[in-house]
Design a protein around this nucleic acid. Structure first.
Lengths: 175, 175
DNA sequence: GCGGCTATGTATAAAGT
DNA sequence: TACTTTATACATAGCCG
């Protein structure tokens, strides 16, 4: 009954969106602005809560540069470059190439994940159309997708950690 | 009245926290892990949605390096450095003890290896579970199968590479 | 394009296993 | 010790001025 007394909703509220390139240029600009702000805020919170250093560099759709740095961007980049340079110089080419190979691994994982999500969604729609029965609803749900996501993230983290540790060990134990 | 029939709440749910340095070391580590993951995901979404490039560098509480880069970290940093000529030479800055941390201590490395062994075992179990789980067999299609195969291959190659790089330690990995 | 407003989607602090 | 669950805090898509 109360429902009937409720006012007409003033807005549609936030709507779910697919994570894919936005076509509308104006929309893209707005989203970039909002999300960049959110990203920097998150980074700031991470730095404060965990007492760590971090830096972010972002180029806007119009190629304008935005950066975040705690304590400051250049200091973090110096650390990164120092470390990377040292890492590369310290050992043989195999090591550095291996390490470089894992730059962008995260993005690859995410792409694979997105592909798999789409497939799951497709199959799910197909199944719903067929309306075969309850087995489907019991078997495919967000949890499956989340598990897949966890798996991909775990795989990525695992590989990264293993290689980092393997490098460290190989330096200590020259075999 | 319905309230009286409701179960006692199982958890307190998320609670509001103040954004200030976390004191409990364990809590700090957990929060760092979660929020770093979230931060990277947000960055990834921003890059996809707005079709832009970005890079993030974070040092963990234990001074471990984590980086995100679209298309890759180094490219973004180069752009940044070239764009802002005010970047001091890395080598002239204070010594980078950053990557010295990667070598770590012997005991520390062994602990890490133990953790990774467990994690790998878990991932394998998860994959096996998926492979024989009913939901998978019932809802499978060729593309999904291929995708799973890709995961398995990735896992296999990971192990293979690990063997190649740390063959002396193979006795520590029972697979 | 910029900021404010909802309503809703998403991240995550704590508790549980 | 780490992973999962749950309830809640927080971020943000679509609108409007």
């Amino acid at each position: 009954m109360d429902n009937m007394l409720q006012q007409k909703k003033k807005t549609t509220g936030r709507r779910k969106i697919e994570i894919k390139k936005l076509d509308k240029e104006t929309n893209k600009q707005v989203t970039f602005s909002k999300r960049r702000q959110g990203l920097f805020k998150k980074a700031s919170e991470l730095c404060v809560l965990c007492d760590v250093h971090a830096a972010i560099i972002v180029f806007s759709p119009a190629d304008k540069l935005y950066s975040f740095g705690q304590p400051n961007t250049d200091a973090i980049l110096n650390s990164y470059i120092n470390g990377t340079t040292e890492f590369t110089d310290a050992k043989s080419m195999e090591d550095s190439s291996t390490y470089a190979e894992y730059n962008g691994q995260y993005e690859e994982s995410l792409k694979m994940l997105e592909m798999e999500k789409k497939k799951l969604a497709e199959v799910e729609n197909l199944a719903k159309t067929w309306n075969r029965g309850d087995w489907w609803n019991d078997s495919i749900d967000d949890m499956s997708i989340n598990q897949l996501e966890q798996f991909m993230i775990s795989l990525y983290e695992l590989r990264k950690k293993l290689f980092e540790r393997a490098d460290g060990l190989s330096m200590m134990f020259p075999f």
